[in-house]
Amino acid sequence: MVEDLTFSAGRGELLALMGESGAGKTSVLRAIGGLDPIAAGEIRIAGVHLTAGRIPRGPRARALHHAVGIVFQFHHLFSHMSALENVWLAPVHVRRQPRVEAERRARGLLQMLGVGERADALPHELSGGQSQRVAIARALAVEPSVLLMDEPTASLDPARRGELAATLARLAGEGRTVVIATHDGEFARACAHRVVTVGLK
């Protein structure tokens, strides 16, 4: 259980939650994303107020999930769908965008992240780094103002880390709030504007 953690991040800010493995970074991200309830305290994010004990339902959940995108450590791509379908699924079924338009934008996102040529591949055919970029594209496709990312360097070889840092900087630069959870101090210091330490009590 994580206790006594207070932090805030504004638009365009790239914030890193630092801590050892098992320190509870993932729990913090899941609570912010509205996936798990918090036991005490409160979270205010993109106009949604999360209180202790319950995860949001209904319109508040829709507002929260629209505002917050999550890239999981193990990506959790939908394994029965191509990379492209993974990306346009939520825009079509949640944001009610026309299919053709959503697919065109999904292709654009994959290209922007450098995996345009893997659009038709199934998740099990992608490398760790490619999966991560598809997962980022999937999260960005619903145009969230906040992007949460769990252990972003875990699936990357060292050569790719710089590329990821540049991508994160660009996403923050476009006005999003980006929060990453990492135990990789070097990466955190290299790319984050601010580092918050999470510890188990």
Binding site: A61, H66, G69, F72, A90, V94
Partner: peptide, 14 residues
């Protein structure tokens, strides 16, 4: 079906 994919779907607003 892995719980992670269900979490991912919820996070996307399904």
């Amino acid at each position: 079906v892995p719980q992670g994919q269900l979490d991912a779907a919820r996070a996307l607003g399904f």
